[in-house]
Design a protein around this nucleic acid. Structure first.
Length: 520
RNA sequence: GGGGCGGUAGCUCAGCUGGUUAGAGCAGCGGACUCAUAAUCCGUCGGUCCCGGGUUCAAGUCCCGGCCGCCCUACCA
């Protein structure tokens, strides 16, 4: 984490046909939190997100809705996906759409480069085609036929026989990269994380790779293959390239070499595309592979993967409307070990909101600021006489700052927050033990009262800086109530304990007000 | 079929290369306090560590065999 270094982090790009649910928001928040953290560590952090807009499904949906695919994508980007970023307070530096000219043009350059270098050849794709679905089916999508189709494999959706079709396709020689990929996983054990994800990727590649069909000619909503415009690029091949086209590949070499390679945060369901296909593509192009690929877990509702069909899909706004974006961010980042599946429940969300945010952090801020207002007319005491108890708080501030930073460097977001919370808890205990309200009764204890309140205020300042990437809204309010200079987001997080802040506090509304009504 | 991960207090989870009486948070119960969003602090209750073998002076922690759950086994994003 050296200052000035670049930290480029990405989320997957959203397939515009989907409806935003908390899983999408979860990925965004995780990447955003990491980006904010690194930004506050003085690095040149750059968060990319965006949308994936090509492919047959989108064409089909658009047609069904009587609009062009581009119009359809425009609509969803504006009404669904960009609003999602606002809903959970994402501070992205860029938003790329695969229909952006910068993407299409440079993705073509990439493809042409691979073609010229001999990594692409003309082949024949053979597959089972369902006329009803108008697409190729995997054997696993087929079921045993019934009635007049007994003994045949039929489409699971249409229950009709599929046809074995051949189609001319362009293929990427991915198979030739298997050994280099395995060497990559071996040499850089952190390339794919967490370990469970790495294991799966390795065993997958060890089974041997076949070449990848990267073009389609049965529909035309996509990026044209530069040397053959009767083909469009396979959506995944197209989509993955967003990570470099957004960074200036093919267009701004200086910028590209400064930013790339990136850290990719993805759901484990699309891990393989990012940990196998994508690095193989980059190797073929002679570009550096990603810095690392982190596959996070799924959100489970009632022990099962969230799904629309089971009515367990939850829109992020359902949560933020009641609890706010900070609570959303805090809850999912704190309650779930990043990398593992995590269970979501309204009960757990409410419980953590109440005990950790409202009673823990929020109330700590309230009680400290209220006492400074009440006993010191809002003036933050200046003092130099500290006791062991004060020094212990100081030591904790430094310790958790270091521990949290170390955890973040391992992408252990939940551990980082847990570390910071040790300071929340310790400060609450400190105040109870020091009894500033008792000290305030006797003028002879004035110096001691000053030291206690100063220590508490400074501790709050440290918390505001450390928690800003997690709960940015609350921390901005707190920082300003503490009279801190500038923006809390400009305070160095790796030296969060360096309180230089204000002279006066101003009254603070509850950061996390009690929520009475039961939700869900 | 092959492979991965997991099964630890009511709930959510920690327990690294095996080693003192198995931990945390929340919930529950009791007490203290009053600055604060009836918040905070202290104490306390609570577990056959999925089951059965084995290795070892010693196993939640390693090995074998089961049972249960989730996931991967490629070109739908």
């Amino acid at each position: 984490m050296s200052a000035g270094a670049s930290f480029y982090i990405t989320t997957p790009i959203f397939y515009v046909n989907d409806v935003p649910h908390i899983g999408h928001a979860y990925t965004e928040v995780a990447a955003d939190l990491l980006a904010r953290w690194h930004r506050q560590a003085g690095e040149d952090a750059w968060l990319l997100t965006g949308t994936d807009e090509h492919g047959q499904k989108i064409l089909r949906t658009a047609t069904a809705n009587g609009v062009t695919p581009k119009e359809w994508a425009d609509r969803l980007v504006e009404t669904a996906w960009k609003p999602l970023l606002k809903t959970v307070d994402i501070k992205n530096d860029d938003f790329i759409r695969t229909t952006d000219e910068r993407h299409e043009v440079n993705a073509q350059k990439f493809l042409q480069h691979l073609y010229d270098a001999g990594h692409i050849y003309t082949g024949e794709y053979e597959g089972f085609y369902c006329v009803g679905c108008e697409e190729y089916k995997q054997p696993s999508d087929l079921i045993e036929g019934t009635g007049e189709f007994i003994g045949q494999q039929v489409c699971a959706i249409h229950s009709l026989p599929v046809e074995l079709l051949h189609e001319k396709n362009y293929f990427f020689r991915m198979s030739t990269f298997a050994d280099r990929l395995l060497a990559l996983y071996e040499d850089d054990p952190d390339f794919v994380q967490p370990a469970a994800a790495r294991n799966e990727v390795i065993s997958f590649v060890k089974q041997g790779l076949s070449d990848l069909s990267i073009s389609r000619s049965s529909f035309d909503w996509g990026i044209k293959v530069p040397w053959d415009d009767s083909h469009v690029v396979y959506v995944w091949f197209d989509a993955l390239l967003n990570y470099i086209t957004a960074a200036g590949y093919g267009q701004d070499d200086e910028r590209f070499s400064r930013l790339w390679p990136a850290t990719h945060i993805v759901g484990k369901d699309i891990l393989r595309f990012h940990a196998v296909i994508w690095p193989a593509m980059l190797m073929a192009a002679g570009l550096p592979v990603p810095r690392r690929v982190f596959g996070h877990g799924w959100l489970l509702v009632g022990g099962e993967k969230m799904s629309k069909s089971k009515l367990t899909g939850i829109a992020p706004s359902q949560i933020t409307d009641t609890f706010g974006s900070d609570a959303f961010r805090y809850y999912f980042m704190r309650a779930i070990s990043f990398g593992q599946d995590g269970s979501f429940s309204w009960e757990d969300l409410s419980a953590r909101y109440q005990s950790e945010l409202a009673n823990g952090f929020g109330n700590l801020a309230s009680r400290v600021i209220a006492m400074v207002v009440r006993y010191c007319d809002g003036e933050i005491p200046v003092t130099t006489a500290f006791t062991d108890a004060d020094a212990a708080i100081r030591a904790t501030e430094i310790r958790v700052t270091d521990a949290a930073g170390e955890a973040i460097s391992r992408l252990a977001i939940h551990e980082a927050i847990a570390s910071v919370w040790e300071l929340v808890d310790e400060l609450n205990g400190y105040i109870t033990t020091q009894e500033p309200w008792g000290l305030a009764k006797d003028p002879a204890d004035r110096d001691r009262l000053d030291a206690v309140l100063f220590t508490a205020v400074r501790g709050l300042g440290t918390l505001a800086v450390l928690l800003s990437p997690v709960v940015p809204e609350a921390c901005a309010k707190l920082w300003s109530a503490l009279g801190g200079e500038g923006l809390v987001t400009d305070q160095r997080i790796d030296r969060a304990w360096e309180w230089t802040g204000g002279t006066h506090v101003s009254p603070l509304e509850a950061l996390f007000p009690r929520i009475e009504a039961t939700v869900g």
